[in-house]
Amino acid sequence: MTSPSLPENWRTLLAGYVLNDLDAEEVALVDQWLSQYPEVTAELDALQATWNRIPESLPIEPPPPLVRDRILAAVTPAAPAATTPARRWSWGLVGFGLGWAATALALIVVWQENQRLRLALRQTEAVVASFSQPASRLYTLTGTDVEPQASGRLVIDPNDRTALVTTTDLPTLSSREVYRLWAIADGDPIYCGEFNPQQPQDFNQWALPDLACGDVDVQMLITAERSTDPPVPAGDLVMEGQS
């Protein structure tokens, strides 16, 4: 039931309130009604909900499947980049006896060196590919007091919306923790993805969750966080980026 104190055109004014076309005096009047009459609040909510539903009238257009993949990649921690089948090889070779031990050891060393070089090559290729993008931004990463030995490089490709980070001596975190990359713009941290290196020299690449991560005037920081924590920086600052 409508209060007799409300004027005849009260609903018209509410429609104007939703459409944002009232003058200051009318807005004040509606605000006053909202504090006095529950039916005004209910009607305003209904009109607002009606306005919000307008896009539902559009013929549905599903997004390409690629969009779903990109979003899930952006919110899922990066998978470990390297594999370590060395142990299987070495166990197999140990059984060949002492005579073969030296050969096996040499083979392992060669294999590991090969792996290191291949990783370095992949790393170099990925970095070179990123460098070849004229819009790419390069940051030198240096460890803070928490991880003073750590160093690395960060390449942000705003066109491909990807981040590539190479790290040296940044410790592997437990499975419940991740390193998170932040872009600081006007003091506001923007979440730019996360990773966890699996070896002393490692690289990780992922899709950027926010376009602002590729902005020119941002400072890049890396913190260590629990993987289930909300994407707000709360853990130790471990690396800083200098462009």
């Binding site: 013929p59 257009e61 599903p62 997004p63 969009v67 990109r70 919110v75 376009l211």
Partner: peptide
């Protein structure tokens, strides 16, 4: 689909609509 449809209608550009859809969900 709701987000993408609205983004496409407003931006009239599939690539931008995909980008906005990603931004909205992330």
């Amino acid at each position: 689909s709701l987000v993408y449809t609205l983004a496409l209608r407003m931006l009239s550009n599939p690539a931008e609509a995909e980008d906005l859809t990603q931004e909205v969900f992330v």
